[in-house]
């Protein structure tokens, strides 16, 4: 099983992938994020009415996409270069088990584009294409 903190440099409170369910580097990754009332990112969004911010679902997909890389990204330079066609179709909140699926769809030089889908109980709640730069040595 993939050790998430060995692979991703993100840490609390911004590590948004809890588990890797399926991982074929360069082909497909399915990961999972469990949303909870005690999630620090929900405390202010919104008080008494916790909802996962849409941009964080995009971030979850970007973090899941890091596992498409065969080599660990700790100590490497990684960044998001573009978000395309992001759609937020339904809200997510405490108790939701979010399935994050990403597949590469184009590569040129350092940039890689992935197509991502967030599902909750089989229903698509967010889709986006994200351009990422991953794996360069940090300068």
């Amino acid at each position: 099983m993939t050790d998430i903190t060995d692979h991703l440099p993100h840490r609390y409170p911004f590590l948004l992938v809890d588990r890797i369910l399926l991982r074929e580097p360069g082909v497909r990754v399915v990961a999972e994020k469990l949303v909870s009332f005690s999630d620090p990112l929900l405390q202010g969004h919104f008080p008494g009415r916790p909802l996962v911010p849409g941009v964080l679902m995009v971030e979850m997909l970007a973090q899941a996409a890091a596992f498409l890389e065969a080599e660990p990204l700790v100590g490497k330079s990684i960044f998001m270069a573009q978000i395309q066609d992001a759609r937020f179709k339904a809200p997510a909140g405490p108790g939701d088990r979010l399935e994050l699926e990403v597949k590469p769809d184009a590569t040129f030089g350092k940039l890689k584009r992935v197509a991502g889908t967030v599902r909750c109980e089989g229903r698509e709640i967010c889709t986006a294409r994200i351009v990422l730069s991953m794996g360069e040595a940090a300068s």
Partner: peptide
């Protein structure tokens, strides 16, 4: 820029 290059490849 390089993001446009990726789009052009596609």
């Amino acid at each position: 820029d390089s993001i446009d290059a990726l789009e052009l490849v596609l």
